[in-house]
Design a protein around this nucleic acid. Structure first.
Lengths: 109, 109
DNA sequence: CTGTAACTTAGCCACATGGCTAACCAACTC
DNA sequence: GAGTTGGTTAGCCATGTGGCTAAGTTACAG
């Protein structure tokens, strides 16, 4: 996955990982805290955290025997920017189509 | 993939597919037109188109022997909305932190 | 210093993904 | 109606993903 958008979008393409993101927006948390609400074995859950971290959406640091994760907002902004740009282009195209339609409605004004 | 966000995010997690989206924002196009710039066999490319269509990002209709695809903007908006909401929550949290910091700076005003 | 809590690593499994070739069908073109 | 163009289907392959159990490690608690 060369592009950063690749890993960010693919990290967000999973409800478990999106739930983790939502939880972390409320503040940092430990692995077991985050794991709590999810009905899956810890190692499976850790893979999700790993993906989030590789995508740069989350950073973590271990103190003692517990690892604390916190969110990193920048990569999400990149994804949002891409989407916003596509929407602008799309809206621009609709505007041009409408202008064209109006021009066709009254051919000689 | 239960959620719609799942399939939309995962559809966008690939540069080929994002390129197709960008191209289609400029107007409808046939399969071979879309395939043109991509250095991969047609059947492989078709799988990408299939994923886009299953995610609802694209619709297509066959007339004669050529299939024309056009974009469907709504699902992208859903993804953008999710991201925008997370950002709002994140910014809200930063505001609260800053308020807290200021409150700590001058304890009795 | 023994026990337990909090990860971590290793390894297995089933299925999805992203690529390919080969062969096929359907519709224009000449 | 023979050839070509535009897709489509079938089937193979390597790798990635998302889940599991079992066993290991490391720090804190008593």
């Amino acid at each position: 996955m060369a592009n950063q958008l690749d890993s960010v979008f693919s990290a967000m393409a999973d409800p478990t990982r999106r739930a983790v993101i939502e939880r972390l927006l409320d503040g940092p948390a430990s692995v077991t805290d985050l794991h709590g609400p999810h009905d899956m074995a810890l190692p499976s859950f850790l893979k999700h955290l790993g993906k989030l971290e590789k995508a740069g959406l989350v950073r973590s640091e271990k103190t003692g025997r517990t690892r604390i994760l916190h969110i990193e907002a920048a990569p999400m902004a990149a994804a949002e920017d891409w989407l916003a740009q596509q929407r602008r282009l799309w809206e621009g195209r609709l505007d041009r189509l409408q202008a064209l339609a109006e021009a066709l409605e009254r051919p000689r004004t």
